[in-house]
């Protein structure tokens, strides 16, 4: 698994799209979905998890279970996950936003642990973290 992380509007999707321009990709934009599909056998990109978790989950355990069911079913050598870093701002006033921020933080920690590669995108530039 290759994980890309960066702040919002930093050009993460564009960077991945360019890197995979010659490949046939199952691009899963989870933010628009009410449940995750089955990953196909080839190249898979999973993005928009923050919005997906925000609208479909209220409990961290079931949220992580749901995401990792998808991840474990995909071909690890051909799976790309794009996550947005939402953990550096002021603690949100609304409890659901606080829950989301914590859940995404722990999701990212686990993704980084299991990923073979982690790349950070900063305004279109890339740095390998792992």
């Amino acid at each position: 698994m290759h994980v890309y992380i960066g702040g919002a509007h930093n050009g993460k999707r564009e960077y991945v799209r360019t890197a995979l321009a010659d490949e046939k990709v199952q691009w899963v934009e989870a933010g628009d979905l009410s449940r995750l599909p089955k990953p196909e056998s080839g190249r898979v990109v999973l993005a928009g998890l923050e919005a997906y978790l925000s609208s479909n989950h209220r409990d961290e355990e079931s949220a992580l279970k749901d995401v990792f069911r998808f991840i474990e079913a995909a071909d690890q050598d051909r799976l790309v996950v794009i996550v947005t870093d939402i953990g550096r701002g002021i603690v949100p006033a609304d409890p659901h936003s606080r829950w989301l921020r914590d859940t995404c933080g722990r999701l990212n920690q686990r993704l980084f642990r299991e990923a073979g590669r982690v790349t950070r995108i900063w305004y279109g530039l890339a740095k390998e973290l792992k």
Partner: peptide
């Protein structure tokens, strides 16, 4: 400023 690392 870096202000884009927080929830939407």
């Amino acid at each position: 400023n870096e202000v884009l690392d927080e929830p939407l």
